[in-house]
Design a protein around this nucleic acid. Sequence first.
DNA 1: CTGAAAGCGCTTACAG
DNA 2: CTGAAAGCGCTTACAG
Lengths: 345, 345
Amino acid sequence: MATIQRVAELAGVSTATVSRALAGKSTVSAATRQRVEDAARQLGYVASATASSLASGRTRNVGMVMPFLGSWYYASVLKGAHRALADAGYDLTLYHLEDTTRHPRRRQRLFEEFLMRKRVDAFIAVSLELTAEELTRIHDLGKPMVGLGGPLEDVTTLSIDDRAVAELATSHLTSLGHRRIAYIGGSEGFDLDFHMPAHRRQGYEDALIAVGVTPDPAMRLAADFTIQGGHQATLQILGDPRLRPTAIFAASDEMAIGAVLAARSLGLRVPEDLSVVGIDGHELGAFFELTTVDQHPVEQGRLAALALLAELRQDTAAEGHANRALPYNLHVRKSTAVPPVRRRD
Amino acid sequence: MATIQRVAELAGVSTATVSRALAGKSTVSAATRQRVEDAARQLGYVASATASSLASGRTRNVGMVMPFLGSWYYASVLKGAHRALADAGYDLTLYHLEDTTRHPRRRQRLFEEFLMRKRVDAFIAVSLELTAEELTRIHDLGKPMVGLGGPLEDVTTLSIDDRAVAELATSHLTSLGHRRIAYIGGSEGFDLDFHMPAHRRQGYEDALIAVGVTPDPAMRLAADFTIQGGHQATLQILGDPRLRPTAIFAASDEMAIGAVLAARSLGLRVPEDLSVVGIDGHELGAFFELTTVDQHPVEQGRLAALALLAELRQDTAAEGHANRALPYNLHVRKSTAVPPVRRRD
DNA sequence: CTGAAAGCGCTTACAG
DNA sequence: CTGAAAGCGCTTACAG
């Protein structure tokens, strides 16, 4: 593998000039730059990231800290962030923040060893619920950080307005004429950001109140954020003769798909007998013709990466820890429609 | 951030001794080691990966090259590999090998820039179909590499026996008494390893022939490896009055789920009217009570990482480029049963 | 616009 | 068992 020394010899300049020319510094003459580039190409030279990092103090590598690997949302965010970073010439190193209670040693090691190695210039933290000590440790690293999802103290955060999203989904249903709308929310502790379920419930209730409906606690169920969770909760709701909802709003698309399948298994047609709306923009939504509030996870990853790159570029110690709002939009498909004609009570 | 120099001062030894003590070299006295460890802990010292790499030539970082981010299988493999690497003290840097035809520049840049930076000691390549030139470039990097999935020339590869897997799934059906078994295989070009569809089809046919059934080309359909793909193919198969299969074998669990949903939409019960078996061990399989041949993707990622770590440990130039077989097992759930009593033809 | 030289923070023969 | 010193391959003030 070629070194900068070899390139310098071939181009007939010093290693300092090679470094400047390939880094695109403006203080190199066009002719010299050309010779250096030719020599580098001829030798297949690419600067060693290791040596470059040690000398410059910049790694051109970003750490991505995620609580889950293997689920659709996180994989999508990862994809969006990776592409934006790669386009800027950055590498992405992945850190899995495991569950504290189940894997205390692995999690501890992440903070005491992996993140301390100075392998990255900055971090993107997705849906992180951190202890005070963990947050201190991260701050002590002195690296820029952008959070996606849960609001973190003294960290620039991008997050979706969970209340507004839930209100939009519910209003979509009320505007179609629905009044008996059940809500399947997250069970406590399932999601890492424990404010999210409360915000979404608030949005749901706000939308009901806006059309004069008093929220009925019996119409709210907690479930896991999975197809199975939505399925069970829906069987529960539809099986209770007192409830008779005409629509279900689920806090995730997977739950909503579970609701659709549960309705079908009871012989109900969606949307003729029951409307269903979810949140996410999940890849399976298209197949199930699910109406949803799309939160664009790939785009979320991209925006987090761009925000971080901006901080790195201006090297701001970043006082402006804004909590920026992420985009979302209602994607109407065929799982929602006007409610069935009301039966006599 | 503490440097090795500070630790050396605090412990009253040279930096060389600090380095040896913390690296666990046996040539350090117990007393000295203890003092060094105490000093390091007190200062919160962790060696800089950058400096360590430059000095030692080892990065303790592995590159994971994947053609897709965001799908369940790849996310699962990533998860398994990440954990095994982290447990060995290694970091994981992710490289997305984008589709050649759609993103020629991004893919080219991966080979000409990202992989050349010497940021990693070795690579794990998942389902990679590489051009001759790309393979040459990877070999020229002189780094150990383990392939998962597609067989790569001169590379240690872990792969599943696709023929045997398909034969097992099909034999499960024939042993239940099925003889009219349709097969939904991958459409050409969808998967990167283009031998896989042929091998699975071979296994399907072998199992039929073993019970005296002549494979009928009309019972084979190609589809995308998705729920949608399986759904469409199944409507096609069940809609053809000449075929009347009692069972469907799909080359992936997502296809198989599509088959189950298609059957239900036609009023058929699974498994009473139609048995369905898939391949994968997909997380959704449990919900749909799908019988499948589980290929344990998380475990695949772990095994690939362990194989790579073994190569790194013995620093073998690795002549033994064995193609090791990955484990799989039949997971019988409720989507398969004896065939319905045959109607008169 | 370019070069000589220091230095980034470690590891590791070499010597004792 | 330990230390002094070289060196890993770059980047970047500093000087001209």
